[in-house]
Structures are given as structure tokens and as C-alpha cells.
Simulated scan of single mutants.
Amino acid sequence: MAQPTTIKGGKVRVLLDLTGGGTYTAPCGFTSKSITLNKALNDFQIPDCDNPDLVDWLGRDAVSLSMSVSGEGVLASESVETWLDAWEDVDSVAVKVEWEFPAKTITWTGSMHVENFDVGAQNAQRATASVSLQSDGVMTRVVT
């Protein structure tokens, strides 16, 4: 049996370009990230033309795609204003999501809104932050 080629969590990156100049940087502080690819579906019934009394099967049409990103970790001084600026922006911000494998890198680029920026603080413990982003239009995928 052949072993799968896997990657560690640091090879999954979320990068922002708040200036729109094409320079993407990964805000500091994430200790975990999650990328969710969504496909919205509409259901429809498929009748049996030979026996209309049979229970219909459901068919599904794809109607939209979206991407969401969530991450959490420490509240880092180096990135807190980056996240606040992106959250305050009425427009979506440029985002790049990368999965770097040894033989290829899968990259999505597009615009996303910072939906939530949550800060947690417990006495005598490090302050934490969690962030969620939602795609705003096409996230273009390139494999290199």
C-alpha cells in the first residue's frame, strides 16, 4: 500500500492584501485554520414516468459556490490592526488561500469579508482571537 502525501498545518496559509497592491501577508497568531468549500444546491423531484405512484427520487442542481475561512489562536499585537482594518472595511478585502504540498501548491485568490473577529480573555492566560471570513464573488483556483 502506498502512503499518502500529506502536509502539516503550517502549509495551509491565509494571506491578506489590504492595500490592493498585490502583496499578500499572513497575519500572525493563528494556531489553527479551517477552509470550507461550499456548494449550494436546489432539490427537485424526479418522477417515475412508468409508475407515477412510486416515491420520487430527489435530483439536485448546483446553484452557487462559496468559501469560508476560520482561524483561531493568540491575539497578536503584530496582526490585531490588520484584522480590525479588514473587519471595519465596508468592502471585501483581497485574500489568498494556499495549500502547499511537496509537488504542487493549490492557491485560491479573490475577495472576502471578515465576518467575525472575536477576542477571548481569561485571567492569567493569553488572550485569544478567532476570525471568520466569507467569500465575496469568485475565488479563482490555480495549481502550480
Rank of each mutant, 00 (worst) to 15 (best):
P4M: 09
E78P: 00
A86Y: 02
S132W: 02
I35S: 02
H113Q: 09
V142C: 01
M1C: 05
C28Q: 13
E115Q: 14
K8L: 11
I46R: 12
R60W: 05
A86G: 03
W83K: 00
L16Q: 04
V74K: 10
F101E: 14
D17V: 05
S130F: 02
E72L: 01
V12T: 09
P4D: 12
G20Q: 08
N42Q: 15
Q3N: 08
K96M: 14
L65F: 13
V90E: 12
D136E: 08
D56K: 13
D61E: 13
K33A: 11
P4R: 13
Q134M: 12
S77H: 10
T105D: 00
Q45F: 08
Q122W: 02
A124D: 13
L37F: 12
G20L: 04
H113I: 14
V97R: 01
T31W: 04
N38K: 13
V55F: 12
S32D: 15
F101A: 14
G21M: 11
S130K: 01
S135T: 08
H113P: 00
V14F: 15
P27C: 10
V114K: 02
R13Q: 15
V142Q: 05
A129Y: 06
S64I: 06
M1K: 08
I7E: 02
S130D: 00
L15S: 07
A127H: 04
S92L: 01
W83H: 00
I46W: 09
N116Q: 14
S79G: 06
W83R: 03
S111P: 02
V138S: 07
R126E: 09
A127W: 03
T36F: 02
A62T: 14
I46D: 10
M1F: 06
K33I: 13
A103D: 14
S79M: 07
A26H: 03
A127I: 02
L16P: 07
R60V: 10
V95K: 01
V93C: 09
D56S: 12
S34R: 15
L75G: 00
V55Q: 11
V12A: 07
T6G: 08
R60K: 11
E115V: 12
V80W: 08
S32R: 15
M1E: 06
N42R: 15
R141A: 15
S70G: 12
R60P: 00
G22F: 02
D89V: 07
T36Y: 07
A76N: 15
T5R: 06
S64Q: 10
T5Y: 07
D17T: 03
K96V: 08
H113E: 09
D50T: 14
T19K: 15
G22N: 04
S34K: 15
V63T: 15
R126F: 10
P47Q: 14
E78I: 04
M112A: 15
D136K: 09
S77R: 12
V63R: 10
V90W: 11
G110S: 09
L15I: 02
A127R: 10
P27I: 00
G10E: 15
L84K: 12
M1D: 07
